[in-house]
């Protein structure tokens, strides 16, 4: 079983770089990974700060998806989710627990993607609205926008998180170097 301590010190520079396709080399480039980390961290820390301290409002926004009704599960999600986003953002910026943060963000974004798709289909079928004109506040922390934009955004976030997750090593971190 991997120890947390061993997992924390994952900061060996990718001296030889990843091998394989150009795409893999691009995704494994530490500067690219750093940009992905900063983008994801900025997005999710901002999104979290819009929702932290407003659990009731966030709970109502979640309710708009008609998946969770008022009850303990809805309120727990409204209380905890923004803090999870904040922790993941801080992890990516600091370079600690990055694979875990990337995994959490990939899973969260996959859920968001499914929920937004579900709601978009609902709006399209209820009012005959074409996909490109479906417009609502997804409760993400950035206000109302076109659903197709959110779907593309969330897909990109998943790809960025996946690139971080699969990065062979990490540079630009606060974690101390592992000895030996």
């Amino acid at each position: 079983m991997m120890g947390i301590r061993e997992c924390l010190f994952e900061n060996e520079p990718a001296a030889t770089g990843p091998r394989g396709s150009r795409l893999a080399a691009f995704a494994g480039n530490q500067r690219v990974i750093l940009i992905f980390r900063i983008v994801l961290a900025a997005v999710f820390i901002y999104a979290a700060l819009q929702k932290i301290g407003k659990p009731l409002m966030f709970a109502d926004e979640i309710r708009m998806y008609q998946v969770l009704d008022r009850g303990p599960l809805l309120y727990v999600v409204a209380i905890v989710l923004p803090w999870m986003e904040l922790c993941c953002g801080i992890s990516l910026l600091a370079g600690l627990f990055m694979r875990g943060a990337a995994l959490v963000l990939a899973v969260l974004n996959a859920v968001f993607l499914a929920m937004i798709t579900w709601r978009t289909i609902g709006v399209m079928s209820a009012g005959g609205t074409p996909l490109m004109k479906v417009y609502f506040d997804c409760g993400c922390g950035f206000g109302a926008t076109y659903a197709w934009k959110k779907l593309i955004e969330d897909s990109l976030f998943i790809l960025m998180a996946a690139a971080i997750y699969f990065s062979p090593a990490f540079a630009f971190t606060l974690a101390p170097r592992r000895k030996g």
Binding site: I79, M84, F97, R99
Partner: peptide
């Protein structure tokens, strides 16, 4: 490793959330 880290993030996040 990622699962272990994700569990730590989840615990820290949830604890901070409920305390706040």
């Amino acid at each position: 490793c990622a699962i272990s880290q994700a569990v730590v993030i989840a615990i820290v996040g949830a604890a901070a959330a409920f305390i706040f």
